[in-house]
Design a protein around this nucleic acid. Structure first.
Length: 503
RNA sequence: CGGGGUGUAGCGCAGCCCGGUUAGCGCGCGUCGUUCGGGACGACGAGGUCGGAGGUUCAAAUCCUCUCACCCCGACCA
């Protein structure tokens, strides 16, 4: 055969195959392929919007449940504030407006009507006196309410969270990582003292760290954001920062100490125990559906997703190998086994579709199910089952009466292994450099995190960003800048920081 | 908003330069049969106002004009 023709045939086959673009070829394409082929999400009809499909939503739901119980255990309660906010509210805190004004969706009219050609048009008569914005975040509505609710130190602390959607009109969007509308939780707390607010900010950051590391198996650096990277309207922003499979950084959660900025803006005062009037101290904090993107890019490989067992919608998928004539016997064999597994608290899914086993293996690998249980006629005969791990493809044949004991243990091992390997990947790709030339070389050619000295000036920070596209991700809590020099200016370092290109 | 591109079946595309019968292909989808321990195969079948409007022509997916939509690349963001 003519070599050119055979190449074309091969290429065509690759094109139509069910597999994803390899990470090494195009990481961004890999990501999109995985999100869509694993059935996590789809594009919505309005540019930049996303439909979270049932499998993706189940994943988010698990994350949500875990964090929801964490905050409830620490004394927080849920509430719900409106989607629509008077435009004037946003303007009350100077930095806050500046931060969000450019990406607000604005409601200007309240009606549509049919025009003379029977087309739908905005009814000009319905123009609003005061335009309304769709929340990009809820600080302003919430503080307008807190003004009514807080009078005395006895009303504090006020520890409210809401699970909500917000809209930020983004120019460039990516499924889960940055969409025009996204789901998140936003906590908004009010305190009598600055010290208490700071403690709250740090407590939540710690919960975020636990959520990321202990449940999503996603190692994170925790620390403070630089002045230029902090939230609009905050005194301090803390964040958790993770490394994705392409060595770029993902800001996975932020916790802000808002000081008295919003109290001042909305005039929220309280009476102290000794009858003095004081401004309230505030915090706000959030994690979003972006975490789902983080999980995908922390663990995924060329076969698709790899989900940490603690958040996987299905922890075990059962692929029976059967024909019509032996289906019943395999079902009878499986029923008691799976019931044991389920009562051990394992989330089990059975796949009895008529498709071939090989097809199902690939599909469930794409969907990242941690464990696959195969049962065929041979296993029924030998009283065995076949167990295959998604993370390392390890296959073991085990005695049927052992599965209820072994599976939970195996899930734990997978959880730990995913975290370990992500952490190893991060340390392999975290560099220390001594010169700025070296810095530029690493960022341009290797990628990853660079831990180095910074003189603390915005000037150096901006210069580095413009030169290299790398930004200060975080000033880690465990920084040690003694003896370090700023990688850019050579001046004595004020901080040790982590630089990276970020999502 | 500046530069580049694409609109043809659910998805991915060919056809367009050089107008000419019933507009094709792959995947997917439906029915039936044979298969089933790593992406099965065969037979039959459903599915299209060729983005929209106008024009040129005996004849337009194909040529011309206008229009709409979307995608990719450069300043912001969880």
């Amino acid at each position: 055969m003519n070599p050119v023709i055979s190449y074309l045939i091969l290429y065509d086959k690759l094109n139509v195959s069910k597999s994803v673009t390899p990470q090494s070829k195009d990481y961004a394409a890999w990501y999109t392929d995985v999100v869509t082929k694993a059935g996590l999400a789809d594009y919505g009809p309005v540019k930049g919007t996303m439909v979270i499909r049932p499998y993706g939503f189940a994943l988010w739901d698990n994350i949500k449940k875990i964090f929801d119980s964490m905050i409830k255990e620490t004394g927080h309660v849920n509430a719900y504030f409106p989607l629509l906010i008077p435009k004037s509210f946003l303007a009350q805190e100077a930095e806050h407006v500046e931060g969000f004004a450019k990406e607000c969706a604005v409601v200007t009219h309240t009606r549509l009507k049919l025009d003379e050609h029977n087309g739908l048009i905005v009814d000009p008569e319905s123009k609003l006196e005061e335009e309304v914005i769709i929340r990009p975040t809820s600080e302003t509505v919430i503080w307008s309410m807190y003004k009514k609710w807080i009078q005395s130190y006895r009303d504090l602390p006020l520890l409210i969270n809401q699970w909500a959607n917000v809209v930020r009109w983004e120019m460039r969007t990516r499924l889960f990582l940055r969409t025009t509308e996204f789901l998140w939780q936003e906590g908004h707390t009010a305190h009598a003292t600055g010290k208490e607010a700071e403690e709250e900010t740090l407590l939540i950051l710690e919960l975020y760290r636990q959520l990321a590391e202990d449940y999503l198996a996603m190692p994170v650096y925790t620390g403070l954001k630089s002045e230029s990277e902090k939230f609009a309207g905050a005194e301090q922003t803390y964040s958790i920062e993770a490394m994705m499979g392409d060595k770029r950084a993902l800001q996975a959660g932020t916790s802000h100490n808002l000081g008295q900025n919003f109290a001042r803006a909305f005039d929220v005062k309280f009476q102290t125990q000794d009858n003095k009037e004081e401004m309230v101290y505030a915090t706000s904090w959030g994690v979003s559906t972006r975490l789902v993107g983080g999980v995908i890019m922390t663990h995924g490989d060329d076969k698709g997703l790899k989900l940490p067992p603690k958040i996987a919608p299905y922890q075990v998928v059962v692929v029976p190998i059967f024909r019509d004539e032996n289906k019943q016997s395999i079902q009878d064999y499986l029923t008691p086994l799976l019931s044991d597994l389920r009562s051990a608290g394992v989330r089990v899914h059975e796949d009895w579709r008529k498709d071939s086993p090989g097809f199902k293996f690939n599909e469930w690998e794409m969907k990242g199910v941690p464990l696959r249980l195969e049962v065929g006629p041979k296993d029924v005969e030998n009283e065995k089952v076949v167990l295959v791990r998604r993370d390392n493809s390890e296959k073991q044949i085990i005695q049927k009466n052992k599965i209820a004991g072994l599976v939970p243990q195996c899930l734990d091992e997978i959880q730990t292994a995913l975290f370990k390997s992500a952490k190893a990947f991060r340390s392999e790709n975290t560099h220390t450099v001594t010169t700025y030339d070296e810095f530029k070389d690493v960022i341009a050619n290797q990628g990853g995190f660079i831990r180095c000295g910074w003189d603390g000036t915005e000037k150096s920070e901006i210069a580095i960003r413009e030169d290299t596209k790398a930004t200060i991700r975080v000033i880690p809590f465990d920084e040690n800048f003694k003896g370090l020099k700023c990688i850019y200016s050579g001046a004595p370092a004020r901080h040790e920081v982590i630089f990276a290109k970020a999502y």
